[in-house]
Measured scan of single mutants.
Amino acid sequence: MQRVNMIMAESPGLITICLLGYLLSAECTVFLDHENANKILNRPKRYNSGKLEEFVQGNLERECMEEKCSFEEAREVFENTERTTEFWKQYVDGDQCESNPCLNGGSCKDDINSYECWCPFGFEGKNCELDVTCNIKNGRCEQFCKNSADNKVVCSCTEGYRLAENQKSCEPAVPFPCGRVSVSQTSKLTRAETVFPDVDYVNSTEAETILDNITQSTQSFNDFTRVVGGEDAKPGQFPWQVVLNGKVDAFCGGSIVNEKWIVTAAHCVETGVKITVVAGEHNIEETEHTEQKRNVIRIIPHHNYNAAINKYNHDIALLELDEPLVLNSYVTPICIADKEYTNIFLKFGSGYVSGWGRVFHKGRSALVLQYLRVPLVDRATCLRSTKFTIYNNMFCAGFHEGGRDSCQGDSGGPHVTEVEGTSFLTGIISWGEECAMKGKYGIYTKVSRYVNWIKEKTKLT
């Protein structure tokens, strides 16, 4: 034993070699072989497995989906700052455009905790909710729209109204504003409101030439003092309507412009014939205590009207009353817009006519005020429907199939267009061939041609 100890002390290297040989010859039971080890760690190889990531292109799944990435790591994937920024906006807080917040056709661009709407022409605001041009839906104005110097929408209202708090709607500024039905039992019968379409306001006024200088022999019209197929109006439903009495009662109609003036057809009036105007009328054979009678003290036909040349060209006249009318729910003026808007309103496509005229061709006159909704007829169809001249200051309205029309005794009465609950004068009943005849239409004086003249002559002093 002493000898062994001496050998170990003198030859430590020998001992180490012996131990190493023993270990190498022993069977290893701690580690699995290569094949079995792979069965336990069965993990798919990654895209760049075996390579240094710093030297390969980034992978979106590896960089940002398996674990949260930084902007720089995302930049490695896209290799483009702009594309990385677009991805980053949604990656950080989701897609803010998912709810489609942009209105009126706006395009949404996502941002971090926010979004941006790219608005089409005519709109602005956070969600493109603000109209900035009158060309689109009248700028959301209830009545009139004008573009300011910086191309912003400025709404306005006709006389007797003021802008509401929203700067879009119009509200009454006087007790009985024009064009409004205020009798409670008839307010439910107000005709369907007309909503502004998209309009090209630059070209809204037709490029028409008034044929002022045409000389033409007097034409022989049949029954051209021209509501057939209409309905009984309720008291106060058309408070701007008046009836004219002269040699015979209810020979023509008219509309209240203001307390002192009536507008009617020029062919209705004769110099030297006494005319009485009755406002607030409903049943011409009954006294309903809503009527107001006034005498006409002055007749002003349009300066281009000449019955000797043509009885229905420039067929418009103004009547001055001896005493002002007292405005109330049964006696209310009709609204008159400017030339541009009167023309736009007419193009809405349908209007209402009213009167006490004959209820059928050569038949009896109506006792109760009649009204009828009539569609506008395109000019080409209008011209083809008659052998008589249709001037540019006239328009056609009615039904091709016949059966409904204005008729004798309705002449001078109103053709009105309702705009968001307020009625505007767009025409004056003038003439036609018979009444409600198939293929024939009622012919009306186009008020847009005469609004400046009306307003100039009827100013209240």
Rank of each mutant, 00 (worst) to 15 (best):
R3H: 11
M8R: 13
M8D: 12
I15W: 10
T16W: 13
I17E: 02
I17Y: 14
C18A: 15
G21A: 14
C28L: 03
L32F: 08
L41D: 02
R46A: 03
Y47L: 04
K51Q: 15
K51L: 09
C69L: 00
E72V: 06
V77S: 05
F78I: 09
F78W: 06
N80W: 01
T81N: 12
E82Q: 10
V92H: 09
V92I: 13
D93W: 07
G94M: 13
E98C: 08
S99A: 11
S99N: 13
N100Y: 12
C102T: 02
G106W: 03
E116R: 06
C119W: 02
F121E: 14
F121G: 14
G125I: 02
T133K: 13
C134W: 03
C134V: 03
F144S: 01
C157T: 00
Y161T: 01
E165G: 10
P175R: 12
P175S: 10
C178G: 01
V181I: 11
S182I: 08
V183Y: 11
Q185T: 15
S187F: 12
V202G: 10
A207D: 09
Q216K: 06
F221M: 10
E231Y: 06
F238L: 07
W240T: 01
V242Q: 00
V243A: 13
L244K: 01
C252M: 01
G253D: 04
S255L: 04
E259L: 04
K260E: 04
W261K: 01
T264W: 01
H267T: 05
H267C: 03
T271G: 11
T276Y: 06
V278Y: 05
G280K: 02
E286F: 10
K293A: 07
K293C: 05
I297Y: 05
I299N: 05
N304M: 14
Y305V: 02
A307I: 08
N310V: 03
K311Q: 06
D315M: 01
E320A: 03
D322N: 07
E323T: 13
K339E: 15
E340A: 11
G349P: 04
S354E: 03
W356G: 03
G357V: 15
V374I: 08
D378E: 10
C382I: 03
C382K: 03
T386D: 05
I390Y: 12
F395Q: 00
C396V: 02
A397W: 02
F399D: 08
E401D: 15
C407I: 06
Q408I: 15
H415N: 01
G421Y: 04
S423L: 08
F424L: 01
G432W: 05
E433G: 11
E434T: 13
C435W: 03
K440D: 15
T445I: 06
N452Y: 07
W453C: 00
W453Q: 01
E456T: 11
K459Y: 08
K459R: 06
K459W: 06
